[in-house]
Every structure is written in C-alpha cells, then in structure tokens.
Design a protein around this nucleic acid. Structure first.
Lengths: 253, 253
DNA sequence: CTGTCGGTATCGTATGACTTTATCGCAGAT
DNA sequence: ATCTGCGATAAAGTCATACGATACCGACAG
C-alpha cells in the first residue's frame, strides 16, 4: 500500500541511510511480516539482505528501540517486542502504519481516542483561544472551502484546522496527540477514494459549526459540535472500511 | 530532585552505557540546562565531559532523536529541538521529567489530558470488561486497602488499578496513555510527602466508587466517578504544588 | 537425572579512517 | 556596494575492524 503522507515532520530522516533501514524494519514489524520472534541475525542481515554497515544497522535498531518496537539483549538477539509495548502514539509509528495494510481495529481505536480528546480540546480552544489562534483556525477552514474537494491543499487545510484547535487549547500534551488526529483524517480520506460528494459537504458543514462555536467562545457547544464531527467522520470511514474489507477480503482471524 | 521511579518498564536500558548517556543528556535538556541552542561539539564532549566512545554517544543521540528531543544535521551540529516537537507522551520522556524540577504547567497539562481520557476509559471498561479484567482491577483495589498508606506496595497497586482499567477498555491506544496516568499519580504522591491522612481516605473512597460502577457495568456512572477521582487528585496535588512553590520559590518568568 | 562448567554466538563498546553534507566566507561580477 | 557563486571547512554520516561482556546451550561429571 503506497500512500502520500501528509504527516507532520517526524523525527526520522529518510535521506539518511539509517533512516531507510529503520523504516524498512519498522514496516516489516508493523505489517506483521516478523511477529514477536527474533530478527534476522545481525551478520546475515548485514551481508545479504541490505548492504549496509553495522553502524547504520545498529543506529536504526536504537531508533526502533526508542519507540518500543524491538528489544535488544546480549546473546539472545534483537527481538520484536509485543505490540502492547509499542509507542502507538508516536508520529513515526503512526505514519509507518500507512505503509502496511489497514488494520480496522487499530483505526477504530484511533478514532475512539480522538473522540475522547478532540471535543475536550475544542472546548478549551473556545475558552482559551488567542486572536492568533483564532486566525489560524479560520485560515484552516478557509483553506478547505477555497480549494476543490480532496485536493492536496484541502487536505493540508483540514489537518491545519484541527492542529490549530489543539494548539489553541494551550496544552502541550494535547499537541502531541495532533499526530493521532492527523492519522485518523488521513485514513478516512484514504479509504474513501474521492467518489463521494455528500459526505464531503457534511464534513464541511461540521467544520463550519465547530468554528462558529469557537468564535462564540461557547465551550460546551464547541465540544458537542466537535463530537458530532468526529462521529460523522468515523461513520463514513467505517462505511468505506467495510467496502474495502469486502473487496480485499483481508480475513482477520 | 531524586525520586523513586515506579514507571512501567521503559525502552531505555540504564545498564548499558549508551542508556546512561542518553539519560544524562535528556535530563539536561528537559531541565532546561541546555535550551534550544547547540549541544556540546561531538569531539569536546567525547574527550572531556564524559569519557565514552563515539559509538555509545551516537547511539544515545539516535535514541533522543527518535523521541524528538534533538535534531542532528551535518555541519550545523546536533541541536536541542523546540519543546513542541518533543514526544511528551513517551514513557521515557515522562520519566525523565521526574529527574528535573517539577514544572507546574506541565503537571497541570498532564492532569488535564488525564481528565479527558480516563473517565472515558472507565466508561468503556465498565461496558467491555472481561472477568479477567475485572479480577485485575479488583486486585489493584485490594492491594491499596491491604497495605499501609504510601507504602511502595500501595503505590504499585494504585498504578495497577488504573492500568487495569485502561486495559479493560480494550483499546490499544488508550494503553499507551497508561504512562501519562502513572506519571500524574506519581507526581501527586511525590508532592504530598505523606503527611496527610484525609486526602488518602478520600482517594480510597473514590477508587472504591469507581470499582463499584465497573462491577455494575454502569458506564456513565463509572465515567462520572472516575472524573471525580481525577478532580480530587488534581486539587490535592495543586494544593501541595502551591506549598512546594512557596518553599522552593522557583520563580517562573 | 541434576548441576556445574566451558564453548560460543551475539550484542555492546572502542577506535580510526573516509565520505557526505551544509554552512560560511572570500572573491569576482554586476 | 550588493549580489552571486564557488571552494574551504567543520560536523555528522558511514564503514571496517577489533575486543570485551554476557547469557544461552550442550557436554560432562556427580
């Protein structure tokens, strides 16, 4: 699955060699090609699979270790860690998921988390926003209505809208969850391949109502409307997920 | 500030040399000793400050890069990244905060996030819990009442109680936020140095009420009671934070 | 069958050399 | 004098090699 990635700048540098190795390994892990067993022996991997020095390989492994994907111990080897010790909220880990087949349960989990966090964030944004915050949110909204549906500029504006709201909440930990929101938005746009006009109009209206509540400084209203937005987004995404599931039939045991 | 750390197993291995270097650098960054400027030049750092090989140093830097704390670029050097690109929700990053002076704004942010997430998680736990989940939650509660206040076993039971609830919600992304909940609990226990009996009784009662709602499978009730628990915890923590602030007078400009 | 012991494979650390990259300053042109 | 471009340079990136530390595993003795 090859996808354009509109993610926020992540910490991984794909220009560097170790970054490419890290990405390659990470995708193999996340897509389940290697389970919770052992990775390829260092030597064999180095020589045969990818021609890269031990330094680059080790730094890639350290990178993955920091994100909880692998655990390296002397003698026993470098093993893939169990999934519940992965940092699923890490921007890189989230973006690597786009390289693997869609995991319906995981996407549902992400939306669920988002439905807990983003309405509350919208409430705070309505109460705490500065003029600069509001301008940024409005800029995002206008970027959505001034560009054609599903254009790259539109998607970026959508992401910017939600990020601006999280920023307006004035809570540093909420901003770390921006990557979760971005991921859900990208999944939803990715799954519905652009052949629906009705959903798009609904989404636009949802955004307008949230913006309106934030302008009014009405926290409860903003929360309720953001909640509706997320719910709508989830429902359409689930619809398309079901379709994709029927097409691909990726039977999940 | 030296503190016992009851955190979940993090990805950093303090037994290894690179891990010690990473921790040392991370604490210096988080506590603000080095701002957003440049780190010590590789060479000078290697030779003088810490006597360690380039390998270990580089792997430590890669580790921090993965968590967004630093950005390394050829020629310009390895710089400390701006705070809003740090992975504040990473278990290691959270635990490193305990080595620095308490940052009141950050602790408030953590509690705020927790107040958004944990009540919703309690709701899901009430609806989705398996028998094993419930047993785990109950085990945590009994560990709290069967041990003396503020004993290590009690603290561990408290953490286990909340982690079990997050696990019972059957959402993998919520489990990643367990480190946030742990961090807030540890901050609150750390700040009130054990000389309060009233708060403790209140806290115990809050826990009992949450457990009761989960047993009844009443989602709304569980959410409301968890919300009350978090609010109570935040209030007492803020009280002690104010005291500590007066004592230490760590004037924040 | 059990327990100790050594071999061995793998990760951890150290070192030195070379490559790539991006910044900065100098020189030349406009 | 300002702008443009090119090269010197410094720092990270990569490679190769060597040795130390560790824990698994099989063999051997009790």
């Amino acid at each position: 699955m090859r996808v354009r990635d509109f993610s926020r700048p992540t910490t991984l540098n794909p220009d560097r060699l170790f970054g490419q190795v890290a990405q390659k390994l990470a995708v193999a892990i996340i897509s389940g090609i290697v389970k919770a067993g052992e990775l390829l022996p260092n030597e064999a991997d180095l020589k045969s699979e990818i021609s890269v020095s031990r330094t680059a390989y080790r730094e890639a492994v350290k990178f993955l270790t920091a994100k909880g994907l692998v655990e390296a111990r002397p003698k026993s080897g470098t093993r893939v860690a169990p999934r519940d010790s992965w940092n699923l909220l890490d921007p890189d880990v989230l973006s690597w998921h786009f390289e693997a087949d869609p995991n319906e349960k995981f996407i549902r989990d992400l939306f669920e988390l988002r439905s807990f966090v983003e309405p509350s964030a919208a409430r705070l944004a309505a109460l705490r926003r500065t003029p600069a915050d509001l301008a940024r949110i409005q800029a995002g909204y206008h970027g959505m209505i001034d560009n054609p549906p599903y254009a790259e500029a539109t998607i970026r504006a959508d992401l910017a809208f939600h990020e601006a709201i999280l920023a307006a909440a004035q809570n540093s930990t909420l901003q770390c969850l921006a990557s979760v929101v971005s991921a859900t938005i990208q999944w939803s746009l990715l799954l519905k391949s652009g052949d629906d006009q009705g959903f798009y109009v609904t989404s636009l209206f949802d955004h307008e109502r949230v913006l309106d509540a934030i302008i009014q400084r009405d926290g409860d209203l903003a929360a309720a409307r953001m909640s509706a937005l997320v719910t709508d987004s989830l429902n359409t995404t689930l619809t398309f997920l079901a379709w994709a599931g029927q097409r691909n039939a990726p039977k999940i045991a």
